[in-house]
Amino acid sequence: MRLSPGDNLSRTAMSLAVLSVFSLFVFPVVLPYIFGSVSLIMAILSRGRQERLSRRGRSAAIISTVSIILNTALIISTVVYFIKVMHDPQLQEQLSQVLYKTYGITYDELMSQLGIMPK
């Protein structure tokens, strides 16, 4: 059975929505925004002249919106955490231990490499 253009578009939107969620864990910050935004606009366009989105289109819209929100929350929490670390020597020590175990560098070395002088 041949799919209508709207069905094809909603299927593509769904695939991109799933990719958006997947990229949250693999390559966050940039890719979830790109995949999520394109998926959302495609889901909206798949509606055509209908009053409501199809089931698949609605699912794609919800999943991509959730992905965008989660990505935004991830970015905000990371920024807030790093601001806290810069003002808290205890947190700096904890982060330094984790960084040294994982990457072999301390917190101070990382900050000087990034050009941000530690307080």
Binding site: S37, V38, I41, I44
Partner: peptide, 20 residues
């Protein structure tokens, strides 16, 4: 509101939004 998607996606979603 859809233009916000363009900003979030570094302009990529703008192709579909501009078509619309």
């Amino acid at each position: 509101p859809l233009q916000l998607l363009t900003v979030l996606s570094l302009g990529i979603a703008g192709l579909w939004v501009s078509s619309y």
